[in-house]
Design a binder for these strands. Structure first.
Lengths: 263, 263
DNA sequence: CGAGAGCTTGATTGGGATCAAGGAAAGTGG
DNA sequence: CCACTTTCCTTGATCCCAATCAAGCTCTCG
């Protein structure tokens, strides 16, 4: 159908810079399956084997079930992203849309078999996988070592980078995910997410408008709170410790983060 | 030197099934740097850019610094493993040996540039990256959603799979990492690791001999405790809930794991 | 064998989960 | 457009698992 053709061609050109008529392009096209998801819909995937997904437009969450009421969101994905979905192994993975989404689904094995035949495609995929792995590692650091406030600040920082609008240090975020999704992504409950957002709001670091819009007043402050300690000073470094207590007495331990949170 | 040549040739043959004399092999060889590490030594890496490492023999930990006294071990690697080390970005990463280790270091960008030119190499790398990513995601699930006992059981299960010896359901683990390393990997303190190991020992599920040897009596029990819920029933499934309290009154919440641990 | 690092065990504390109400948004039907 | 409904979000009170603090113990190695 026309829709499938069009989105596939865009996929080949934007993701790999390869014309869809190339040999690998035709092979990939043969195994592509286009899907359109409503606002909150799980993508139908064969769970027996891994899949590779391309998000044409929209937003999705990649989640793992740990048990009936324990879900860990492993990654969020937005338009233009390519990622692989593990087959059900130790955990059961699923992809769900956060808003209306169009995507392409490939079976992982033949996809990689074919992709490796074209240097441009395999080079791009290796780079994207490396990015995904590094994001996942940073998430592991957050989940293993950071407290609730640091995790939330890290989340806001990452979202500002990926879907934020606005210039300078001020960023506007229209988050497609619910508080529950944020909590499931950060290993926190919705109550804790709400409380920490409230703390940031009271401290004057963010504004919230409605349910989905969050305005970051100064990205530097958020970056500072997130407990990152590499050399990525994208914006200007902050000298003095920012103290959430400056506005109001708050039971938030910013200055003394724990070794490993509480679990 | 001879050592470097020999280990590089082994690398090409075992990792990719490609003769070192192939064109891509010669290019890779030119950028390879062989290192030998003592028992507990940090690998000297240029942190400005990502590196790709191949472990010829030995064992290493890949760790991220979150702050002065918060370290998250992101992965352990053993002989034959290939993995990429992120450049310092949000966090600062380092690779350290757990025992005497020989390895090859490549700068990531030219390594991937070159690797993508050979379909056999890029195919193998895509597969390894996919495995690394899936391991990291499973770790994220553990860190975000599981309690101390489940994490430790998951760790033992994974180690039994990777470096365990013995047949049937009984597995012998000679762990090269310390309790601190285990704790840093699971987002727990050494005390908690020790307590949970003690609980497993008292419950008769494991034996400990000296500091490094752990014998898993029945891998099924450990798998069951780890809270995995996919379809990977490698060994036989267990019907009844195993109850740690059967041996002694223990304050261990096995039956009622929490939503997200405590942080 | 002795020193010291690494491990174990106990007592207490604390951060975030859980339990429990309310309150604001978004959707629905009249 | 407005009541009604529902879902999602916020805020408060209490509880609990794992962190922290504090001794001892035990391997390992020189």
């Amino acid at each position: 159908m026309m829709t499938e053709l069009a989105s596939f061609d865009i996929f080949m050109r934007t993701a790999f810079g390869v014309e869809p008529a190339a040999r690998a392009g035709l092979q990939l096209k043969a195994m592509a399956e286009a899907k359109c998801l409503g606002p909150h819909e799980e993508a139908p995937l064969g769970k027996r084997e891994s899949n590779v997904l391309y998000i044409g437009s929209g937003a999705t969450k990649l989640a793992a079930r740990a048990s009936d009421n324990r879900e860990q969101i492993v990654a969020f994905h937005f338009g233009g992203d390519i990622f692989s979905v593990p087959a059900d192994d130790l955990h059961s993975y699923s992809v769900s849309s956060l808003e209306p989404t169009s995507l392409l689904v490939f079976p992982a094995r033949p996809f990689f078999d074919c992709a490796s035949s074209d240097p441009r495609i395999s080079r791009a995929l290796l780079e994207r996988q490396r990015t995904a792995l590094h994001r996942c590692r940073d998430k592991a650091v957050a989940l293993g070592q950071k407290n609730a406030l640091e995790r939330l600040a890290g989340f806001l920082f990452a979202m500002a980078d990926r879907i934020g609008t606005g210039s300078g240090v001020r960023r506007i975020l229209d988050l497609p995910m619910s508080r529950r999704d944020i909590g499931d992504s950060l290993g926190l409950t919705i109550e804790t997410v709400s409380r920490q957002l409230g703390a940031l709001r009271k401290a004057g670091l963010i504004e919230t408008h409605g349910r989905s819009r969050i305005v970051v007043r100064d990205l530097n402050d958020i970056a500072h709170l997130s407990g990152h300690c590499g050399k990525s000073e994208r914006t200007e470094p902050i000298e003095a410790d920012f103290d959430l207590d400056q506005c109001e007495r708050l039971p938030v331990g910013v200055a003394r983060p724990q070794t490993g949170g509480q679990s």
